[in-house]
């Protein structure tokens, strides 16, 4: 799976860089949205085939509730620790971390209310985070565990990485991914302006 994921993404990036113009953005957005809808339909179908959903939710370990909190704190710790070795302040690294893989809306907000260079850093970091999560989720699920695989997706566990999590783990973990992705997506619009205000002093 990892190999096919990498090949599709790489071919897309190369073709996009060589042949696709910005004017194609609307149909590209439609294509992405259509593929995502089809994919989530298939995930919904898998969830429906999995038997009594209520019972499955009840059987989830309580530690599942901790996944978004651990993933969020871990993102923050990882970013601050990495910033010590880079020419990036801990504050800006934190700003990149608390977007949890969501790069569109937070980058625009940061560019409008704070700094364009920091917005670009946040955009690129979260694009890389999403791509790394897409590539490594099958490996993380297999070698480290299903909940860490959910954590790697951050907010994208609700949409783009959900199908990969679902295919690499099981129905229960897909439910945890929906929960974790929803919580993380919900806090980003609150956390980003808060951290910007802190940085502006």
């Amino acid at each position: 799976m990892t190999k096919r994921i990498l090949i599709s993404l790489t071919i897309g990036i190369i073709l996009g860089a060589l042949f696709i113009d910005v004017s194609h953005a609307p149909w590209l957005r439609t294509l992405t949205t259509g593929a995502l809808a089809l994919l989530l339909f298939a995930v919904g179908f898998q969830l429906g085939q999995g038997g009594d959903l209520k019972e499955r939710v009840r059987q989830l370990p309580r530690s599942a509730l901790m996944v978004p909190i651990l993933a969020g704190l871990g993102s923050l710790l990882g970013a601050v620790a990495t910033s010590l070795f880079l020419n990036v302040s801990a504050g800006h690294a934190s700003l990149a971390a608390i977007c949890f893989g969501w790069y569109s809306m937070p980058s625009v907000l940061i560019a409008q209310t704070y700094d364009l260079t920091v917005a670009t850093l946040v955009l690129l970091t979260n694009v890389f985070r999403e791509v790394l999560a897409i590539v490594f989720i099958p490996w993380i699920a297999r070698r480290i565990g299903p909940f860490p695989a959910v954590a790697s997706g951050g907010a994208t566990a609700l949409d783009v990485t959900l199908p990969i999590i679902s295919q690499s783990t099981d129905v229960e973990t897909a439910l945890v991914a929906i929960y974790s992705g929803s919580v993380m997506s919900g806090v980003v619009p609150v956390l980003v302006p808060f951290v910007i205000r802190l940085l502006q002093g």
């Binding site: 993933a71 971390a97 860490p148």
Partner: peptide, 26 residues
């Protein structure tokens, strides 16, 4: 390069802390 390394740090941090936390609670 800075963004890439930051993304690696974020990914390692989120996976590592979740692994530690879930493992401990389990």
């Amino acid at each position: 390069m800075q963004s890439f390394l930051l993304a690696v740090g974020i990914l390692v941090g989120s996976v590592g802390l979740t692994w530690l936390g879930v493992r401990g609670r389990r």
